[in-house]
Simulated scan of single mutants.
Amino acid sequence: MKKFELEYVLQASTKVVFDRLSSASGLSEWFADDVNQKGNIYKFLWDGAEQEAELLTKKDNRLIRFHWLDSEDEESFFEFKIEIDALTNDLSLIITDFADEDEIDESIELWDSQISELKHVLGI
């Protein structure tokens, strides 16, 4: 598994973006068809398939990190980090994820598609 980072600039408020990244209802608007949460476990549903992730870290309006429960790599995670540029005040969403070397391009395309949906939901 190889770690990679992607950065997307979003014209939206930190709180609005963070809510879409951290709540089951927010994630179900753009990330999955449906999301259910029980404690620190989030269940993501896509076209009848489901995958569970454990919430590892949450820092309000800054960072949220999950670990897929079915991942063989205990060190892997996917993370959403919000950074605000001190000069321009632009909000950057930084996504950290892991994929096998031969699946990184496909993973990047998937994230691009997901973030496009997030922008649509945010009206930007």
Rank of each mutant, 00 (worst) to 15 (best):
W30N: 13
F31G: 01
F31Y: 04
A32T: 00
A32Q: 02
D33V: 00
D33Y: 00
D33C: 04
N36I: 09
N36S: 11
N36K: 11
Q37V: 01
K38D: 08
G39R: 01
N40Q: 01
I41C: 02
I41R: 02
I41H: 01
Y42E: 02
F44Y: 05
W46K: 12
W46D: 10
D47I: 14
G48I: 08
G48F: 12
A49E: 15
E50T: 12
Q51T: 06
Q51E: 03
A53E: 14
A53N: 10
A53K: 00
E54N: 05
L55I: 12
L56E: 01
T57G: 13
T57W: 02
K58T: 06
K59E: 15
D60Q: 14
N61Q: 07
N61A: 06
N61T: 09
R62N: 07
R62M: 07
L63K: 09
I64A: 00
R65H: 06
R65L: 13
F66W: 11
F66L: 06
H67T: 04
H67K: 05
W68Y: 06
W68M: 11
L69C: 08
D70K: 15
E72A: 15
D73Y: 15
F77C: 06
F78A: 03
F78C: 05
F78S: 06
E79P: 10
E79I: 06
K81R: 14
K81N: 05
I84T: 07
A86P: 10
A86I: 00
T88S: 15
T88K: 02
T88V: 10
N89C: 12
L91M: 03
L91P: 01
S92H: 07
I94V: 10
I94Q: 12
I94T: 07
I95R: 13
D97A: 11
D97F: 10
D97R: 08
E101S: 02
D102F: 14
E103D: 12
E103R: 03
I104N: 00
D105R: 04
E106I: 08
E106N: 05
I108N: 08
I108Y: 05
E109D: 11
L110M: 08
D112H: 09
S113W: 11
S113Q: 11
Q114H: 08
Q114K: 10
S116E: 03
S116V: 06
S116T: 14
S116W: 03
S116A: 15
H120T: 06
